[in-house]
Design a protein around this nucleic acid. Sequence first.
DNA 1: TTCCATGCAAAGTGTTTGCAATAAT
DNA 2: ATTATTGCAAACACTTTGCATGGAA
Lengths: 140, 140
Amino acid sequence: MPTDVLLDRLRARGWRVTPQRRAVAQALTGEHVHLTAEQVHAAARGIVPEISLATVYNTLNELVSMGEVAELRLDGSSSRYDPNVGHPHHHLVCRSCRAVLDVHPEGLDALGLGGEERHGYALDGVEIVFRGLCPDCTVA
Amino acid sequence: MPTDVLLDRLRARGWRVTPQRRAVAQALTGEHVHLTAEQVHAAARGIVPEISLATVYNTLNELVSMGEVAELRLDGSSSRYDPNVGHPHHHLVCRSCRAVLDVHPEGLDALGLGGEERHGYALDGVEIVFRGLCPDCTVA
DNA sequence: TTCCATGCAAAGTGTTTGCAATAAT
DNA sequence: ATTATTGCAAACACTTTGCATGGAA
């Protein structure tokens, strides 16, 4: 059974654990976490002051391609990183301050967003992106 | 009553119409159109060879802030531009070749994607982004 | 001891901007 | 004639990469 602790999962995959990587993993812990690379860097520097931004990017990219972290391009110029891949969810973004919250699928009624899961937001738009393989790519 | 022709709507708003802008508007015509700025540039150069990429970007940004075109950040590094704002819709993206299709809301059953609207894709993921104002920003 | 991860700095993208020349109204 | 738009090139922000050093296993 897979542990719930990111670092253990990574170690199990033969990841070489370094202080820098531990710091990045630590920054990416919790719910409603959607940090930019810059923000991860800032948080990680609080633990390992000499960590470079390049290392943060390298680490984030690995985590994403391992499927341990999701990369979100919600808007703006930079990607956000969401560690909460174990429990599928969607996102609620404030048009003004850009605050991002997780919304859980059970909270969806049809395509609206019911009580609790609306988190008090005044909704004015929904964007849905379906992913998959197109007919051509399914053959190949 | 608002015309269906983009250029007429723009003129009605007091837009100064130039050959370059006409070319951009023309490139952004049709359904299932989700071009990158580079692609719009290429298409527009077919009509006005001397149009610069900067002008394409300037024009696209105006169209977006006028609400006449939607900017999509589906994945990859660059934005895509979708002129089909009159008829709200969602998107279907191929993980392999990145083909993008419009899917119409009526085609959604719950959060799946029914027959016709599945366009033959083998689905393996859905991302939903809700937009609105958070409680703090609603007050302000 | 082996090999991988790190930091740095340079290079790369995609996008934006300042400015003088030009064209739409 | 007036004022906005254009093209160019430089500037920008974010991200990636090459390479020598250092550290994890």
